[in-house]
Amino acid sequence: MSTGQIPARQSARLSRLNAELSLKILTLLAVLYTLYFARSLLLPIIVAALIALFASPAVRFLVRLKCPKPLSSLLILTVIIFGVGYGVSLLYTPAATWLERLPLLSSKLALQVDGVAESLDSLKASMLPESSTSAAAKEEENPLNSALGTSFLPLLSMLAQTTAIMLVQLATVIILTYLFLLFGGTLLRNIVRAASTLHEKKNLVKMYQTIEQDISRYVLVITVINTMLGVATFIVLSIIGVADPLLWGVLATILNFAPYLGPFVLTLLLTAVGFIEFQSPGQVLLVPAAFLVLNVIESQLVTPMALGKRFNMNPLLVVIWMFIWGWLWGAVGVLIAIPLLVCLKIIASHFELLPYWQILLSAESSADNNN
Rank of each mutant, 00 (worst) to 15 (best):
I6Y: 07
P7K: 01
Q10V: 15
R13G: 09
L17N: 13
N18W: 07
A19Q: 15
L21A: 07
L28C: 12
V31E: 03
T34P: 04
Y36F: 15
Y36A: 05
L43G: 04
P44R: 02
F54N: 11
S56E: 07
A58N: 06
A58S: 11
R60T: 09
L62N: 03
V63P: 05
V63D: 10
L75W: 01
L75N: 00
I81A: 11
G83F: 01
S89A: 13
S89I: 12
P94I: 00
P103T: 06
S107C: 07
L111D: 07
V113L: 09
E118H: 15
L123W: 11
K124M: 13
S131F: 14
T133L: 13
A136Q: 09
E141C: 06
N142M: 07
A147H: 06
T150S: 08
T150I: 05
F152V: 08
L159C: 12
L167H: 11
L170F: 15
Y178N: 00
L182N: 06
G185F: 03
L187E: 04
K202S: 13
L204D: 14
Y208F: 14
D214K: 10
L220Y: 11
V221K: 10
V224L: 07
T227A: 12
L229K: 01
A232H: 05
A232Y: 06
G241F: 04
V242R: 03
V242L: 15
L246N: 05
L247D: 01
G249C: 04
T253E: 03
P259Q: 00
G262T: 02
L266I: 10
T267G: 13
E277P: 00
S280V: 05
P288H: 05
N295F: 10
I297E: 05
L301A: 13
T303M: 09
K309I: 13
V318R: 00
V319C: 03
W325D: 01
W329G: 04
V334I: 12
I336M: 02
I336L: 10
I338P: 00
C343A: 10
I346W: 01
F351W: 10
F351G: 08
W357M: 06
I359E: 11
L360H: 09
